[in-house]
Simulated scan of single mutants.
Amino acid sequence: MKEFVQPAQVLLDLDCMTKDEVLALLSDKALELGITNDRDAVKAAFDAREDEGSTGMMDGFAVPHAKTDAIKDAAVIVTRFTAPIADWESIDGSEITVGIALLVPDAEAGSTHITLLAKIARALMDDAFRDAIRAATEPGQVSGLINGRLSD
């Protein structure tokens, strides 16, 4: 089974104030982790998706996603913030405190992307899953929770 989320892809207790800061940080991290060689293309892909409509979901979770040829392999990066992101709209009006970012190569947009999005969306409907992500103290706990859901 492919481990989509390594502990290095889980960033806890971040001090970000705006959605743009978060998307820039995700793009920087994608470059640092070797998910892309083109940080700006990834940032542009995140921005383009947000322009279509906010990726803020419910109960403080957002699922930003970037689809671009600049992404080498599908990956997930998880972010958790010390304070809510003030300008990230959500379906239920809750303030975003956790982001589960999907990064997918264009070629896999119709397959891998849809599968990942569906599994994450299903997991986010589970109160126990959301609570466990919020309560985790170590990146390995978060990566284990998410990989468990993605392998279902």
Score class of each variant (00 low, 15 high):
residue 100 I to Y: 02
residue 142 V to S: 05
residue 77 I to T: 04
residue 56 G to R: 06
residue 41 A to L: 13
residue 105 P to W: 08
residue 137 T to V: 14
residue 15 D to C: 01
residue 152 D to N: 12
residue 108 E to L: 14
residue 69 D to C: 09
residue 52 E to L: 15
residue 82 T to P: 00
residue 140 G to A: 11
residue 81 F to S: 06
residue 135 A to T: 08
residue 104 V to F: 10
residue 135 A to L: 12
residue 133 I to T: 01
residue 80 R to D: 05
residue 101 A to C: 02
residue 15 D to P: 00
residue 58 M to H: 10
residue 31 L to A: 05
residue 97 T to K: 00
residue 104 V to K: 11
residue 16 C to E: 07
residue 102 L to V: 09
residue 17 M to S: 10
residue 70 A to D: 02
residue 69 D to P: 12
residue 131 D to T: 14
residue 15 D to L: 06
residue 75 A to R: 04
residue 39 R to H: 01
residue 91 I to R: 12
residue 146 I to V: 15
residue 92 D to R: 13
residue 40 D to W: 02
residue 67 K to T: 14
residue 114 I to K: 10
residue 150 L to P: 15
residue 92 D to W: 13
residue 117 L to F: 09
residue 28 D to E: 14
residue 46 F to Q: 05
residue 57 M to G: 10
residue 35 I to T: 05
residue 81 F to E: 01
residue 99 G to C: 10
residue 46 F to E: 08
residue 139 P to H: 02
residue 104 V to P: 11
residue 132 A to N: 12
residue 111 S to D: 15
residue 40 D to T: 13
residue 95 E to C: 02
residue 62 A to V: 00
residue 89 E to P: 04
residue 134 R to V: 08
residue 118 A to F: 05
residue 12 L to R: 09
residue 77 I to N: 05
residue 9 Q to K: 03
residue 118 A to P: 00
residue 117 L to Q: 11
residue 5 V to H: 04
residue 137 T to E: 15
residue 10 V to S: 07
residue 26 L to A: 00
residue 18 T to C: 01
residue 71 I to H: 07
residue 126 D to F: 02
residue 133 I to V: 14
residue 34 G to S: 09
residue 138 E to H: 12
residue 81 F to H: 08
residue 67 K to Q: 15
residue 137 T to K: 15
residue 36 T to P: 10
residue 20 D to S: 10
residue 62 A to T: 05
residue 127 D to S: 14
residue 104 V to E: 08
residue 14 L to H: 02
residue 54 S to E: 11
residue 127 D to H: 14
residue 55 T to Y: 13
residue 75 A to F: 04
residue 128 A to P: 00
residue 81 F to C: 06
residue 151 S to R: 11
residue 125 M to A: 08
residue 139 P to V: 02
residue 135 A to R: 13
residue 109 A to I: 11
residue 26 L to G: 05
residue 79 T to S: 05
residue 84 P to L: 11
residue 69 D to T: 13
residue 25 L to N: 06
residue 133 I to Q: 04
residue 70 A to Q: 06
residue 105 P to H: 09
residue 74 A to P: 09
residue 16 C to V: 12
residue 88 W to Q: 07
residue 97 T to R: 04
residue 129 F to V: 04
residue 127 D to E: 15
residue 100 I to D: 06
residue 60 G to L: 01
residue 15 D to Y: 00
residue 29 K to N: 12
residue 20 D to C: 00
residue 88 W to M: 12
residue 97 T to D: 04
residue 139 P to W: 05
residue 35 I to D: 05
residue 17 M to H: 10
residue 11 L to S: 11
residue 87 D to Q: 01
residue 78 V to E: 00
residue 93 G to W: 05
residue 43 K to Y: 15
residue 33 L to G: 01
residue 105 P to F: 10
residue 99 G to W: 03
residue 140 G to P: 01
residue 65 H to W: 10
